[in-house]
Simulated assay, not measured.
Amino acid sequence: MNELRGERLQVMLSPEELATLDDFRFRHRMPTRAAAVRELLKLGLANAAVDGDTGVKSSDYGVFNRGPDGHTQADPGTNAPDTD
């Protein structure tokens, strides 16, 4: 199959997410990280079509659980997250 890929997508991953991606890639003998990402996208999109999730926050889509409070919002005057 000859597919034209004219769009580039840049994704930032945590070290844990990158390790998980590489584990998936090597376990399935994929030639590149890009091939692994395309396969995971295909699997995820197929699953999303079945599940039909609605009302889900974007922070729920991380590879790893970020805890019960998810992301914390920073005080507008600082770069540090709220700790109250």
Rank of each mutant, 00 (worst) to 15 (best):
L43M: 03
G62Q: 10
H28L: 03
A74S: 15
D69L: 14
L41Y: 03
N65Y: 14
E16M: 05
A35D: 12
R25A: 03
H71S: 10
V63L: 09
G52R: 02
V37K: 08
N79R: 14
D60W: 09
L41I: 15
L45T: 00
N2H: 12
E16Q: 07
F24P: 00
E7F: 03
T72S: 01
V37Q: 09
G77K: 12
D82G: 11
A19V: 05
D53R: 02
E7G: 06
A35I: 00
D69C: 15
G77H: 10
A49Q: 04
L21C: 04
A48Y: 02
N65D: 15
N2P: 04
R27G: 01
E7P: 01
H71Q: 11
E17H: 03
E17A: 07
P31Q: 02
S58T: 11
S59Y: 11
T32Y: 13
V63W: 07
L18H: 12
Q10A: 08
T32D: 12
T54S: 07
A80C: 08
R33Y: 13
T20F: 00
A74Y: 10
P68Q: 13
E39K: 14
D51A: 04
N79Y: 14
L4S: 09
P81G: 09
D84V: 14
D53Y: 02
Q10M: 08
K57W: 08
R8P: 01
E17W: 01
A46Q: 06
L4V: 13
M30S: 04
A35C: 08
G77L: 10
V56S: 05
D69G: 07
L41R: 04
Q10N: 11
E3L: 11
T78K: 14
P81W: 13
G67P: 09
S59Q: 15
M30Q: 04
L45C: 04
D82A: 15
G77N: 15
V50K: 06
G6F: 07
G70Y: 06
D60P: 01
L9Q: 04
V56D: 02
A46W: 00
G70T: 14
R33W: 11
E3M: 06
G44V: 01
R66P: 03
G62L: 09
V63E: 14
H28E: 07
R25I: 04
G44M: 03
Q73I: 12
R33A: 04
L4I: 09
R27Q: 11
K42D: 05
S58Y: 05
R5P: 01
D84C: 12
R25M: 10
N65C: 07
A46E: 05
G6Y: 08
D82P: 06
V11D: 08
N2I: 05
E3D: 12
A74V: 11
V11E: 06
G70W: 02
M1A: 10
R38L: 03
A80Y: 15
N2V: 05
E16V: 09
A74Q: 12
R66A: 14
D75P: 06
T78F: 12
A34W: 02
S58I: 09
L43W: 06
G67H: 10
F26P: 01
E3P: 00
E16C: 10
P15A: 09
R5M: 06
L41P: 01
N47D: 10
F26N: 07
D75L: 14
D82V: 15
T20A: 15
P31C: 08
V63R: 06
A74N: 13
A19M: 09
V63M: 15
P31N: 11
T54I: 03
H28C: 05
Q10V: 12
D82T: 14
